Simulated scan of single mutants.
Amino acid sequence: MSDVSAADVAERISANVQRVVRGKPELVRLVVAALLAEGHILVEDVPGLGKTTLARCLARSIGGVSSRIQFTPDLLPGDITGVTVYQQKDERFTFHPGGVFANVVVADEINRGTPKTQSALLEVMSERRVTVDSVAHEVPRPFLVIATQNPIEMEGTYRLPEAQLDRFLVRLSVGYPDLASEVRVILDGRTGVSVDDLPAVVDPATLLDAIGQVRSAHVDQAVCEYAVRLAAATRQHPAVRFGASVRGSIALVRTAQALSAIDRRAFVTPDDIKSVAVPVLAHRLVLTPEAELSRQGTAEIVAEVLAATPVPVSVGGR
C-alpha cells in the first residue's frame, strides 16, 4: 500500500501537465479525475488548440509504457491489437503485441480510422484485454485510452459509433485560451518547457493504488439515486431517442468519486455529480432527427435535466 494519497497523485500530475497546458485548470482537473477513475477520455475540438499536446502531457506524466497510434484510413485492426505470426525457424506461432499494449495509449484523430479499425478498440477499452486468434491477451494496468478527434472536418472521417462513444468515461473540449495564456504559450514555445521535457511524476504502482483509494470513497445511497435519476431523465427527454445507459450511471458515480478524492474528501456529494454530469453524459445521448435538425445540443439537454432533477440534501460521510 502506497503512502501517497490520491489527492497527492492528482496534484503531481496536474502541476506537471500545466507546465505545458496553460490556462486550463478545470480541464486538467477533469482529465486527472478520469485518470483516477481509470476511465477513457475523448478530447474533441477544432485543430490547433492542443488536444494532442494535452494527451501527450498526461502520458509523459505517468511512468510505465505509453504509445501513440495515429489513426488513418489505411490503419489495420492488427496494428492496434497485434497479430499472430508463424515463425518458420521455431515452427510455432508467436503473438506480436499492437499499440494498445501500454499503460497510456494516445489514439490521435480516432475518427480518421475506418469503422473496422475503430471497433478493434472496443474490447480492450471495456475489458482491458484483446482476443487475437481466439487467445485472450491482457493489457498492462493501469490502462487508459486518450483519443482525440476533430468535429468540424468531415471529409475522410468516420463517425464513432454510439457503442464506442459509450466506452469513453468523459468527452472534453479544450477551448480557446484567454489572452494571457495564449501569450504564455507562444513565449514558452521559444524558451519554455515542451512536452518532451516533462518527467514522469508517478509510477504505475502508485497510480493503481490511487485508483483503489478513489473506488473506496463512500457513496451515500441518496447520491447514488441522484445519479441514476439524472441518467433516467435523459432517457425520458423528448429530444432524446436513446438516453444514457447504465454504464453512464456508473461513470457518473466513479468520476464523482475521483473528484471527491482530489478534494481530499472520503465521500461523494451531489455537487460532485453535478460537476461531471455534462462531460460524462452528453456524448452518450442520441438525439431525435427533429432535435438534430434544430441543432439542439446534448450538453444543453443535460443542463436541462440537471435543472429539473431535485438534489438530495444533508448528504455527507458515514
Rank of each mutant, 00 (worst) to 15 (best):
F267L: 00
Q236C: 00
L187S: 09
A232T: 13
V214A: 08
V268I: 08
L281P: 00
T191F: 04
V280R: 00
G212F: 06
D220P: 10
V276K: 07
P204V: 06
G243T: 05
A244R: 07
R254T: 12
R235C: 11
L198C: 03
L230V: 00
T269N: 08
R284M: 04
L259A: 08
P204R: 09
R215A: 13
R184E: 11
V246P: 14
V193T: 13
V195T: 15
V223M: 02
G189N: 01
D196S: 14
T234E: 10
V201I: 01
T206Q: 12
L281E: 08
R215S: 14
L198V: 01
E182D: 04
V214L: 07
R215V: 11
P238L: 09
A244E: 06
L252P: 03
P270G: 03
T255E: 06
T269W: 01
R235G: 11
T191Q: 07
A233D: 01
R247V: 11
D271P: 12
S194C: 07
R190G: 04
A258E: 08
T191E: 09
V276H: 01
L187I: 07
S249A: 13
P238N: 03
S181I: 09
T269M: 06
S249C: 08
V185Q: 01
H237Q: 11
I186W: 04
S194W: 10
L179Q: 13
